[in-house]
Write a protein that binds this DNA or RNA. Structure first.
Length: 469
RNA sequence: CGGGGUGUGGCGCAGUUUGGUAGCGCGUCCGCUUUGGGAGCGGAAGGCCGUCGGUUCAAAUCCGGCCACCCCGACCA
C-alpha cells in the first residue's frame, strides 16, 4: 500500500501538514500566515463554538460584538499592553484613498476598545459584574505561522468582564478556567489539560495573573489551549472604568479577559491523530458513522445500507452513506480513516447473507461483525465509549511522558521528549531564563492540590517544563 | 531581523554541473474490466520553468537585480 502520510515518528510537523491537506481541513491563504478553514474543519469548529458558547453563557456572560478597527491611541494607554502587542500589530494608515489622521489598528485582542465602553456603561456597583463575550477574528502578525496553531488571523472567543472586587474578579476568572475551558477540553475535545498559572515571564501583556490550560501533543510538546487573565485595575485605570460603591465612594473596577481559539483545532489533530490520519472524538465529528456499501450487484446491498443509515439518523447519529461503488473499497476506507470518522459500518453481500454488518472502529482499527438489529444500539454505545477511550489514551500518553525530577538539568533532559515536573524553587526566575535559551519553557505552575496558585512566589509550587508550540 | 534552503502542470519531484525549446510519479477526465483495505489496461486534458533584465543563433539551464515561500532561532491564542 502506498504511503499516504509521513509517519509521525519520522517528521511530526510534516505529518501534521499532511493530515491537514489529506483530511481537507485547511489551506494556506494567499497572504502569508493566513488560512482558509475548509468545511470539515469549520464544522468541527462550529461544534466547539456551540459547546463553549453554552458553557460561557452558563456563567452569566452575554455575547456582544465590538469593532475590528481600534484607534491606535487606545492600544497605547496601557503600557505593558502596547509593549507586548506592538511587534505583531497590523496597522491601517489609509482609508478611502486618503491617509488617516490617526492610524487604525486591526484588533489583536479587544481589551482596549471594550475597556472604553465599559467605562461608559458602568456607573454604579449595581452595574457590576459586567460579563461580556464576543466571537470574532483577530490579527497578530506572526513571524512563523503554522496552520491553526499560529496564524496571522484566527477565530476565537474573547471574554471581558468587570467586577467590583478583586476577589470577585479572581473567582470568575478561575470559574472560566475550570468550568468552561477545562471541562470543554476534557469532555468535548477529549484532551486532558493541566490547569495552572503562567509564570510572570509568560504572563499576558497587561495582566496581573494569567492562567493556562496545557495539553500534551503526540510528540510530547505542550500546547496552550486557552487562557484566562486577571487584569487587576490596570485597564480600569487606563480607560477610567470607575463605579460608585455602596457607600458612595468612587472605585476602579477589576477586570478580566479570557480566550480560546481555532488553535484548539490544531491541538485536536496533534493530540489524537495517528499514522493513518485524524481521529476525531465522536462529540466533534461532523460524520460520526459512515455506512459503506462494500460491493454491489443487484441493488440489495445499497437498499439495506440506506435503511441502516436512516435508522441511525433517526436515533440521532450523524451518519453518512457511502454508496460510491465505482470507487474501490480500499480507497474509500483509507479516506474515511484519514478524515478520522469514528465508526464505519461496512455492508456487503457476505455480511447480509448472515444478517449482519461489520463495525470498524477508527480508534483502534478493530473490526467486528454485528447483527443488523443490534446496529443502532451498538453504534450509539461505541460512540460514547470511543469518546472516553480517546481521552484515556491521551491521558495515559501524557502520564507516560511526564516525569518528576529534582534538578533543572534533569528537567531539561526530560523536556526533550515530554514534560518535567519539579519544585518551582529548584527552577526560579534564573532557571527559567536558562531553560528558555534551549527552547524549553515553564508551561505552568500548579499547587500540590491541583488548584491555581495566586502568585508565583507562593511556597510549595510545582513547575511543569516542556517544549511547546 | 540572523543562519540555511527552495521556486518547473493541482500536489510531490527530475532536468540546471556540460545551453538545443520540458519529463516522471500521484491526482483529474473518458472508456472497458474491477470492487471485502489506496485496482488494471487503453486514451486525454493540463506548464510563456517565480519575476525583471543581460549574455547567446538558441536559456528551465549561464550572469545580475528583485520577489515569494520553506526550515532553524528571538515573539505569541
Amino acid at each position: 500500500m502506498a504511503r499516504v502520510l509521513t509517519p509521525r515518528a519520522e517528521d511530526f510537523p510534516r505529518w501534521y501538514q499532511d493530515v491537514i491537506a489529506k483530511a481537507e481541513l485547511a489551506d494556506n491563504g494567499p497572504v502569508r500566515g493566513t488560512m482558509v478553514i475548509r468545511p470539515t474543519a469549520y464544522s468541527i469548529w462550529e461544534r466547539m463554538q456551540a459547546d463553549m458558547d453554552a458553557r460561557i453563557k452558563a456563567t452569566g456572560a452575554e455575547n456582544a460584538y465590538f469593532p475590528l478597527f481600534i484607534p491606535e491611541s487606545y492600544l497605547k494607554r496601557e503600557a505593558q499592553h502596547v509593549e507586548g502587542f506592538s511587534p505583531e500589530l497590523a496597522v491601517v494608515t489609509h482609508g478611502g484613498g486618503k491617509q488617516l489622521a490617526e492610524p487604525v489598528v486591526v484588533r489583536p485582542t479587544s481589551e482596549t476598545v471594550i475597556g472604553e465602553f465599559m467605562a461608559k456603561w458602568i456607573d454604579s456597583y449595581r452595574d457590576l459584574p459586567l460579563l461580556l463575550n464576543q466571537w470574532a477574528n483577530v490579527v497578530r502578525w506572526e513571524m512563523r505561522p503554522r496552520v491553526f496553531l499560529r496564524t496571522t488571523e484566527f477565530l476565537w472567543q474573547e471574554g471581558h468582564t468587570a467586577h467590583a472586587t478583586e476577589a470577585d474578579a479572581r473567582a470568575y476568572t478561575l470559574r472560566i478556567h475550570h468550568e468552561v475551558y477545562e471541562r470543554h477540553m476534557r469532555d468535548l475535545l477529549a484532551i486532558p489539560v493541566v490547569p495552572g498559572r503562567k509564570t510572570d515571564r509568560e504572563r499576558f501583556a497587561g495582566a496581573t495573573s494569567t492562567y493556562t490550560l496545557e495539553g500534551m501533543m503526540g510528540d510530547g510538546k505542550a500546547l496552550q489551549m486557552g487562557t484566562s487573565h486577571e487584569l487587576g485595575q490596570n485597564f480600569a485605570k487606563a480607560f477610567d472604568i470607575q463605579f460608585s460603591g455602596a457607600s458612595g465612594q468612587r472605585e476602579y473596577a477589576w477586570t478580566t479577559s479570557w480566550g480560546s481559539s481555532t488553535r484548539m483545532l490544531g491541538g485536536l489533530i496533534m493530540a489524537h491523530g495517528d499514522d493513518n490520519g485524524l481521529r476525531l472524538p465522536p462529540a466533534l465529528a461532523p460524520t460520526q458513522a459512515l455506512v459503506m456499501v462494500v460491493k454491489e450487484s443487484d441493488g440489495s446491498v445499497t437498499t439495506a445500507a440506506r435503511a441502516l443509515a436512516d435508522d441511525l439518523a433517526a436515533a440521532g447519529v450523524r451518519v453518512r452513506l457511502d454508496d460510491r461503488v465505482d470507487t474501490p473499497f480500499g480507497r474509500r476506507a483509507v479516506d474515511a480513516e484519514l478524515k478520522g470518522i469514528p465508526l464505519r459500518i461496512e455492508v456487503g453481500p457476505r455480511d447480509l447473507a448472515e444478517g449482519s454488518v461489520t463495525l470498524a472502529r477508527r480508534i483502534d482499527g478493530s473490526k467486528s461483525p454485528l447483527k443488523l438489529a443490534a446496529v443502532v444500539g451498538e453504534v450509539t454505545s461505541a460512540l460514547e465509549a470511543d469518546q472516553k477511550a480517546l481521552y484515556e489514551e491521551a491521558l495515559a500518553r501524557r502520564e507516560a511522558n511526564t516525569h518528576d525530577v529534582s534538578t533543572l538539568d534533569e528537567a531539561m533532559q526530560v523536556a526533550q521528549t515530554g514534560w518535567a515536573r519539579l519544585p518551582w524553587d529548584k527552577v526560579g526566575v534564573d532557571g527559567e531564563a536558562k531553560a528558555n535559551e534551549s527552547a524549553i519553557t515553564v508551561r505552568c505552575l500548579v499547587r500540590p492540590d491541583g488548584s491555581a496558585p495566586g502568585a508565583q512566589d507562593e511556597p510549595g509550587l510545582t513547575a511543569i517544563l516542556g517544549r511547546s508550540y
